[in-house]
């Protein structure tokens, strides 16, 4: 029995010791969007190399998972910063406040483009319009005053100018923040541009919300495939399948330009300049959120945030822009906001 006693004592000892350790933490903890992860890890690395603070720990797992973790409460065993590829939702702010996280500083890092790309040796998928993507991927299209299931089988059915390959689009699943942008800026925009929106409103008697929902319902007959994993999974599928088109972040595409060929959207090629000027239609801001209560408690938190948004890092020519981030023209406002710890 002495063995048992010693182990129990040891286990209890470990747990009590841990309670003491849990009080302090000397590195910043970050979690959230897998789209922001490369940027956050680049900044964390350069921050560690250039300051006397330890390198922050960056977890990934998606915007929603990160914000949920962020809103769990205040204290050294909760994260300090949540990365997000979309703005925080009202519901999440309420959940945060319920757990005592009432003061949140929102930081807009810059912009990220979303591009459509296919295998470099594949058919000539070089130019798309949002309307074409909508016509190819919607579950139901309005035809002669009634909703019918999408009859388009090949891209040529959608538009005679496109290659005659069967439609196969690899789109991010709903666990990705990217999907929200895809739905709004491509599918919904395409729905309106193609005139389908008006037709749907005519059919359902003017219910705008229902019409939007109908627009954004995508077909599930195999022509559009939802990718749960990361862009690497989409890239693998495209490697296997020359006729597939995939949805990627601009930075990911720029790292794999030898394997992928990108398509223009609405006649505009995706590039840092066209996204910054707003000409390229499919882009979205990236954010991170700071717990104000942790500033001054967790060493290096304020410094990390300021370092992240410094001109040398997030500005044009910095390492983030080099990796594929489109710098925010209003970066000075964000810097001032962090310096004043201005909450939402």
């Amino acid at each position: 029995m002495s063995v048992l006693n010693t182990t129990t004592a040891a286990a209890l000892g470990l747990l009590t010791a841990s309670a003491a350790f849990a009080q302090s933490r000397d590195q910043v903890q970050v979690a959230g969007s897998s789209t922001v992860l490369p940027y956050a890890s680049i900044v964390a690395e350069v921050f560690g190399e250039n300051s006397d603070f330890p390198t922050p720990v960056v977890q990934s797992g998606g915007s929603s998972a990160g914000l949920k973790q962020f809103c769990e409460g205040i204290g050294a065993n909760t994260i300090d910063i949540a990365n997000s590829s979309r703005a925080i939702r009202e519901k999440e702010i309420a959940a945060c406040a319920e757990n005592g996280v009432s003061e949140i500083i929102e930081v807009r890092i810059g912009y990220d483009g979303i591009v459509f790309a296919s295998q470099i040796d594949g058919p000539a998928f070089t130019a798309f319009e949002p309307a074409q993507i909508y016509m190819a991927l919607a579950a139901e299209l309005p035809v002669d005053g009634a909703m019918t299931s999408n009859p388009n089988m090949s891209w040529a059915d959608v538009d005679a100018g496109l290659p005659g390959e069967d439609i196969l689009a690899l789109i991010p699943a709903t666990n990705h923040g990217t999907r929200e942008v895809f739905d709004e800026k491509v599918i919904l925009a395409g729905c309106e541009a193609s005139g389908a929106m008006e037709a749907i409103l005519g059919i359902n008697g003017g219910d705008h919300d229902a019409a939007e929902a109908t627009c954004m319902t995508l077909r599930n007959d195999g022509a559009s495939v939802e990718i749960q994993g990361d862009y690497t999974e989409t890239l693998n599928r495209i490697d296997q399948n020359p006729t597939a088109i995939g949805v990627f972040g601009l930075a990911f595409y720029e790292n794999n330009t030898d394997k992928l060929k990108v398509a223009t959207m609405g006649g505009v090629a995706p590039a840092t300049e066209t996204i910054a000027s707003g000409e390229y239609p499919v882009s979205r801001p990236l954010f991170f959120y700071i717990k104000k209560a942790h500033i001054g408690v967790i060493p290096g938190l304020m410094e990390y945030a300021q370092f992240f948004m410094a001109d040398e890092i997030a500005g044009p020519g910095g390492p983030l822009a080099e990796y594929g981030l489109v710098p925010d023209p209003a970066i000075a406002e964000t810097q001032a906001k962090i310096a004043d710890a201005q909450t939402m």
Partner: peptide, 24 residues
């Protein structure tokens, strides 16, 4: 390990045991 935050970008070496058991 995925759920307890060990799937992370960690660049700092943890300290020697036993304190290091509590470092990322």
């Amino acid at each position: 390990l995925l759920l307890i935050g060990m799937v992370a970008f960690v660049r700092e070496y943890p300290a020697g045991p036993p304190e290091g058991f509590f470092d990322p």
